[in-house]
Every structure is written in structure tokens, then in C-alpha cells.
């Protein structure tokens, strides 16, 4: 009886406050779409990092002919120098480096030729002797670049130590900033949503003051009096969350999976599975938001 009664009260409240309910739905929809977008961007960044950091290494360029670096004063790195560097890597950096590959000048020239088939770079015909040999280091923890760089930079025969991740840094920075921006907008929108929900619930409570007044008089419990209002807010907000998840699903499906992934296929993208994974988060945020803002406004308007 009581459940049925509460359900009918909720339905009545939703009907009577339709325009406000719709506005709650829309505001939570937009704000949670931003929350979801921010989360998806983060996931994208993480997945790209995971994917690319496995591929990229630290490159230790060894001195080529005619380098102006102080460490290359003796000219091109000799086999002995190269062996020394290798020894340093094995002994001093054994804990940080998981794999070491040596790339000879010839190998690098082959790589170069693969990109520039005529072997001409900026108007100059290059040969293998224009290349420089290098060590490529795979690190246990890609974040430990500093350690490797400190040890190897300035050693004889080492011209330069590169963190290849730096190449991707601008992209990650852009994605991270996009995610922060979305999160910031989400916070603003969520605040709006919270205020709107509490206003709506207050209006709803005031417009049903007569009912709640009678309920109090005849001894209805706080739960019976307040639950319909709480549910009203929660239902509206959760509807907004579901719409947000639906919108994100469509965006990911048609913009990323069907278009971006087709045209730029060498990276892995977030997919609709990620959106489904976000659903509990979005619904949870919506429900919590609605509950908190309703409880705050109800505690002032329907107390026994």
C-alpha cells in the first residue's frame, strides 16, 4: 500500500512539475555528458600512453662524424667507446633498463631510405656514413628517463640522449587539457544541476504543502513524506545520466569507431565498451547529486 502510494505521489509530482523536471533532465544530461567526455578523454590518454610507451624507447645517439658536441671531440664513436657505453648501461643502469638494442649506422640508413627513397635529405645525397649509430633502451618504467639521461649524458662517445616520449608530449598535453576543460565545465554544470534540483524540489514541496501538512498531522513518517520528493529528483537526474550515456555512446560509435578509427587506424581508441563502463559512474553521480540537493532543501521544508 505504502509503496503504491509513494509511486502514485511520485508520478503526480513528475506530472505536475513537468517543465522543471525536463529542465533537470537536460541540465544533468549536459553536465554528465561533460563528465563522461572528460573521463573518456582520460581513458584515451591512458590507453595511448600504454600503447605508445611500450613502443618508444630512450635513444642514445652515439657520436657521428663531425659532431660539435664536447663529448664527441675525438670524432666518430669507435667500437671501444661503444663497448664502454654498453658496459655503463649494463652495469649502472641494469635496474632501470629492461632491454638494449644496438642500431648500427647501416640499419639507420635503411630506416632513412624507407622514408626517403632517393636518399636525398634537404638537397643532400646521404650515405650510411652520414648516419650515427645508437642504442635504443627499453625502460622498466618509462617515467625513469631522468635517471638514464643523468648517467649517459656527457659520456664520451654519447652525443645525445633522447626521450622519445617527448614526441608525443604535445598530443598528450592537448588531450589532458581537453579533459581538464571538460571536467571544469562538468563541475560548473553539476553545480547548476544541484541548484536546479534543490529549487525544483523546493517548489514541488511548496506546491504540495497542503498534502505534506496533512501528512504530518495524521502522523505520516518522514520517509513517507519526503521519499516522493527525493525519488522525483533522483528519477529526473538519473534520466539525465542515461541520456548522457546514450549521447556519449552515439558519439563514440559514430565519430570514433566508425570514422576516426577508420581514417587513422594505427592508434587504439576508446570504444562503446568504455561508455558502458562509465554508466554506473554517471548514474551514481546523478543519484548522489539529486539525493544530496533534495535532502538539503527538504530538511528545511517538510520537517515534522
Amino acid at each position: 500500500m505504502r509503496l503504491q502510494f509513494i509511486a502514485s505521489e511520485v508520478a503526480q509530482g513528475l506530472r505536475r512539475n513537468l517543465s522543471m523536471v525536463v529542465s533537470i533532465i537536460l541540465v544533468t544530461f549536459v553536465s554528465l555528458a561533460f563528465v563522461g567526455a572528460a573521463a573518456l578523454l582520460r581513458q584515451q590518454v591512458d590507453s595511448l600512453k600504454g600503447q605508445w610507451y611500450d613502443l618508444v624507447e630512450v635513444t642514445v645517439d652515439l657520436c657521428p662524424r663531425g659532431s660539435l658536441e664536447a663529448t664527441c671531440a675525438t670524432g666518430e664513436a669507435t667500437d671501444a667507446t661503444i663497448a664502454d657505453v654498453r658496459n655503463t648501461i649494463d652495469t649502472e643502469l641494469g635496474h632501470a633498463v629492461s632491454a638494449v638494442y644496438f642500431e648500427s649506422k647501416e640499419q639507420r640508413f635503411d630506416d632513412f631510405m624507407a622514408d626517403h627513397q632517393d636518399g636525398v635529405f634537404e638537397g643532400t645525397q646521404l650515405t650510411a656514413d652520414d648516419m650515427q649509430a645508437a642504442f635504443r633502451l627499453q625502460l622498466n618504467d618509462p617515467e625513469k628517463f631522468e635517471v638514464v639521461s643523468n648517467v649517459l649524458t656527457g659520456r664520451d662517445g654519447v652525443e645525445n640522449v633522447w626521450d622519445q616520449r617527448a614526441v608525443f608530449q604535445p598530443l598528450f598535453t592537448a588531450l589532458n587539457r581537453g579533459s581538464l576543460l571538460a571536467a571544469g565545465l562538468a563541475v560548473v554544470m553539476l553545480t547548476t544541476a544541484a541548484l536546479l534540483i534543490s529549487t525544483t524540489i523546493r517548489l514541488s514541496a511548496v506546491s504540495r504543502r497542503r498534502e505534506t501538512g496533512i501528512m504530518k498531522l495524521v502522523g505520516a513518517s518522514n520517509t513517507v513524506i519526503q521519499l516522493p520528493f527525493l525519488l522525483e529528483g533522483v528519477i529526473a537526474a538519473v534520466t539525465g545520466a542515461l541520456l548522457a550515456a546514450g549521447g556519449l555512446w552515439l558519439a563514440v560509435r559514430y565519430v570514433i569507431t566508425d570514422w576516426l578509427a577508420q581514417s587513422v587506424s594505427f592508434v587504439s581508441y576508446v570504444n562503446t565498451g568504455n561508455v558502458v563502463g562509465l554508466l554506473p559512474l554517471l548514474v551514481g553521480i546523478a543519484a548522489a547529486l539529486a539525493l544530496v540537493s533534495s535532502v538539503v532543501s527538504l530538511s528545511r521544508h517538510t520537517r515534522v
Binding site: 500500500m1 505504502r2 502510494f5 498534502e211 496533512i214 501528512m215 495524521v218 505520516a220 513517507v224 513524506i225
Partner: peptide, 8 residues
């Protein structure tokens, strides 16, 4: 109504 809200 008075009875409904007290769960009769």
C-alpha cells in the same frame, strides 16, 4: 489519504 500515508 489519512490512512494511506500511515501505511494502513
Amino acid at each position: 489519504f489519512a490512512l494511506q500515508v500511515i501505511g494502513k
